[in-house]
Design a protein around this nucleic acid. Structure first.
Lengths: 205, 205, 205, 205
DNA sequence: TCCTAAGCGAGACGGTACGTCTTGTCTTCCA
DNA sequence: TGGAAGACAAGACGTACCGTCTCGCTTAGGA
């Protein structure tokens, strides 16, 4: 019954996994743009035709992979962020994002660089912006009054900052530690963001 | 003698200019990645072979074009920024960058989006980061003491923020005005950056 | 037990019949070369895998089908030809071959044309040559002496002529009648080209 | 002037010639259907893309090649046939067609067999039929009266016979000589089947 | 005035990748 | 056990670009 489909599914999953891994390793070696589908399928020991049974093109493979990864991250981070800023600004910044970057350092070092993909970069930033707005900004929004800046803009500003920080950090071979980086970025952010979302002050006389 | 070269030069310049304009117009229509050199030379009414007499590839054409544009911008902005923050934070933020984005809105709307170029995005950010460090951060660095954050990191954070702001703004068809956007971003930045560069406080007891 | 096998056999025969008919109808529509096994199985409502359980390839299906048809024809024609030329040249030519062509006109119109199959054409000709030699030439061979031409060559010459006649006839939408065509070809065969081109004799009284 | 185009033309002609020769040699080795365009270009040391600059597909290459060959043959044979049958049936049959077959024996042995091409076979037969009608039948047509058979049908009948004779001859490794074959076929044509199978007459004194 | 060198157009070509199509094999299940 | 369903390897297809080359035209300055 469900057993039937499972065996087939497992074979399919194996093929997809091989392609995913081939992509990841090739990105590190050659940069994203330079990779061809030929390369991926050769590395994965899969027929080129088979690639097209599962993915439309290189971007499709990349983004499906990313979606899986980020869904898992989102779930993991969810609870952490949920009450992160409820009790005011915590002394200890959450470094799980920098930690994730470190875990896939080789990959991100390419993908966030000139040899990466514009689409990837922009999508990750949009994803981050959304996460930040939901999990960081929304909880600390004062219930009434118009903020100085549109909250979604603030999300984008912080996301842009984060990505830049990741890039800077990776270029310096991840010095200093993820924890310190996270603290630095948060501290920098916070001094701005609190004001950003505060109710508008009456115009200066 | 110099005359001789001039006429030839003018012919060469004309060809290059045609190629540049062809690239720009095609980016708007199709997105950067989708453009082929065939497209560019056809649009420019130039033989394909001729392209290779002047540029190595599409990126070469793009970056040579960008270099010219940014050199001119840099010169223009230089004096403005020079004494921008000398007298503390000015009431009126400098909107010349947003104005530049607005002038080439169609171009940047593509190039800073998914349909742009990773290399372009990263280079522009690096360029911005350097500008910011030289013209904004350096002047307000206190002469002694270690800042809370490395100044070049701060440059990158702000540059990332700026780029994100441009993107956000272009997606919203440049609402609100360049002046307001510039003010918003500067205000957000400043509340953070001043602290960022302040001498370290003694550790909390 | 024998019952069991019969039912299975019947199922097998049904599948093969479906494939055969699919092939025939597709030949008429698209020409032989242009047909794929996919096409055949789709038309037959049969899984593609199943095709390979019964036939090696497209030619196999075609020739198995042809073998059946021709075996049946051979049996039918056998007695007729047996004493055809025993009593000299009959006034009435045997038109059963032209009649068979007419029965499958759409099929042969394709298969004997440019859109047919070389293998089919050559095989049919060889088959015809053999038939002719056995049923026409052998009976009229004088018992002694060496003929001017090798009898098997004569078989081939006549077979080539027949096929050409079928083609010519089908291209002209089977005008004139099968009976006349058969008579023409036989007369030509028997009397040679000089007669063929001589002015018509007045009908025999 | 014309010099300009010539050099280019010569380069193009060289490429086409390489492809033609590759095709010919591959036909002998593998049979027509089995050849891929890959094979041809590899054998010709030409890029696959280049093939498509000159020919639409395999058939196009084949037929363009054939057209050239046959135009040359037609010109050569023209004068010969012109007065061939004017003085009645010549004692000596024209063997130039069998000689041509012998010259390209390996090629025709494949192309007129099961491993050849239906389109080729049918076209050659049509071409032959036309030639025969123009050069053999037309000259001996009595000026008035309706012939017993339509002359174009007679052309087809003879053409079919010729092709069958070529096939039979090639299968027997070209025994007997081209001259004898030509004589046989012509005699058969002219006198009909009854003569063909009659006991040999003693040689003419 | 002619000469000559450089910019350029035209286009053949080798090469690489594309996305698609078809084939034949296999494995898993169903009736 | 015959067949359906479908994943897969293999490989050819025709197309699209790329980068290189060779050839001649054009043109404008310097001889």
């Amino acid at each position: 019954m469900a057993e039937v489909a499972k065996k087939v599914d497992r074979r399919i999953q194996r093929t997809r996994e091989l392609l995913r891994q081939a992509l990841m390793s090739l990105i590190v070696e050659r940069g994203y743009e330079a990779i061809t589908i030929q390369d991926i399928t050769e590395r994965a020991n899969v027929a080129r035709t088979t690639f097209y049974l599962h993915f439309r093109d290189k971007d499709d493979l990349l983004f499906q992979t990313m979606r899986d990864v980020y869904e898992e991250i989102a779930a993991r981070v969810d609870e952490h962020y949920a009450h992160l800023l409820q009790q005011g600004i915590p002394d200890q910044a959450d470094a799980s994002d920098f930690q994730h970057i470190a875990d896939f350092a080789e990959f991100y070092k390419i993908m966030l660089s000139e040899r990466g993909s514009a689409a990837f970069l922009v999508r990750v930033r949009s994803y981050l912006a959304e996460m930040i707005q939901k999990q960081v900004i929304a909880p600390i929004m004062p219930p009434s009054g118009t903020p100085n800046l549109p909250p979604d803009l603030v999300g984008y500003l912080i996301a842009g900052m984060q990505i830049a920080a990741y890039y800077w950090w990776l270029q310096r071979d991840m010095q200093p530690s993820a924890q310190i980086m996270a603290q630095w970025v948060q501290d920098y952010c916070v001094r701005g963001v609190l004001w950003a979302l505060a109710p508008q002050e009456p115009p200066k006389p």
